[in-house]
């Protein structure tokens, strides 16, 4: 187990290092990042000062090492637009995005899992095909459009829910659904194929032959044995949700990390954009690591396969 942990942990570290490197080089794509890091109102003196801080006169390798050092000490830089550390700016928005992601995950799991199960149990019948159609529709629905349509129907016409902002649970409903639809589709499909896999196995047939009812079969055996693919997909979904939040938050004026990113691009506050991207990547790497570890706890065979 320890060897497995070290191996996967090492891989995660390499990935994190790679992401930092990648972001550094993206930042230098245009050659001189000074223009990115300063607001449009910056004076020539500001630009010179920025060049000195970044050490642009030094070799690229040295600049890169400096950037790496900042990252290791978790120094995400300082926003010149808001004149505050990037981390402080981000941290104030994290709770809002977490709320939204949790809401979306709840929507996806609570609706997606039962739909997937139902599709598997009714395979070959019309019900199953209709649900599959619905799932495909969820998958093809642009998040921003489903968001706008919900605002139109429930916010403007029916006046049931507030169309933007935050504060109450009612504010959370529409953004969560808009963000959760894509994950819902993924969960439904994964659950369907996982349950179908299990249904074809011998123990299910013998349990059926012994007269075990379908309800008992589902609750006792199928749910647990189909859990592994669902767990591993959750790690991927978390990063999907983070990315989707950029658009959903813009649609609903939800003051989280996504809206912050979009506002920061408009304000040419690149340090903050970069910090959000790095955070998103680190969360993704960590979620994948956590999923792998969880996976190996649930199914010990995984540990051996890596060798």
């Amino acid at each position: 187990m320890l060897r497995f942990l070290l191996h996967r942990g090492g891989q995660a570290l390499i990935a994190a290092f790679g992401v930092v490197t990648l972001v550094f080089f993206i930042q230098r794509l245009t050659g001189d990042p000074t223009a990115l890091l300063l607001p449009e109102t910056a004076t020539q003196a500001d630009i010179e000062a920025m060049r000195a801080t970044l050490g642009l006169d030094r070799p690229l390798g040295v600049q890169y090492l400096d950037f790496l050092r900042d990252m290791v000490t978790f120094d995400l830089g300082r926003s010149f637009v808001q004149n505050a550390p990037a981390w402080d700016i981000i941290a104030s928005r994290i709770p809002q995005t977490l709320q939204l992601a949790a809401g979306a995950l709840a929507v996806a799991l609570l609706i997606g899992l039962p739909l997937g199960l139902l599709m598997a149990l009714t395979r070959g019948r019309a019900v199953s095909r209709w649900i599959m159609g619905l799932v495909l529709a969820c998958q093809s629905m642009p998040t921003f459009w489903s968001g706008i349509m919900m605002i139109l129907v429930f916010g403007v016409w029916l006046r049931w829910l507030p169309s933007s902002g935050t504060g109450t649970l009612a504010h959370l409903v529409m953004p969560s659904i808009a963000l959760g639809l894509l994950s819902l589709a993924t969960y439904a499909r994964i659950t369907r194929s996982a349950v179908l896999d299990e249904l074809g196995k011998d123990y299910v047939r013998s349990a059926r032959a012994r007269g075990v009812g379908i309800r008992r079969l589902v609750s006792r055996h199928l749910m647990r044995n189909s859990a592994i693919p669902v767990i591993s997909i959750t790690a991927l979904e978390i990063s999907q949700l983070l990315a989707g939040a950029v658009i959903v938050e813009t649609v609903f004026a939800w003051p989280g990390l996504g809206l912050l990113t979009v506002q920061s691009i408009a304000a040419r506050d690149f340090v903050v954009v970069q910090a959000v991207v790095l955070l998103g990547a680190f969360v993704t790497i960590f979620a994948n690591l956590a999923a792998d570890i969880l996976y190996s706890v649930v199914d010990p065979r995984v540990r051996l396969e890596g060798k």
């Binding site: 930042q27 794509l29 990315a243 959000v276 998103g280």
Partner: peptide
């Protein structure tokens, strides 16, 4: 693959 695609796209557009 460990950077969420839309975030990677956003940061690159912000630069280019």
């Amino acid at each position: 693959l460990s950077i969420p695609a839309i975030l990677l796209a956003i940061i690159t557009v912000a630069v280019l």
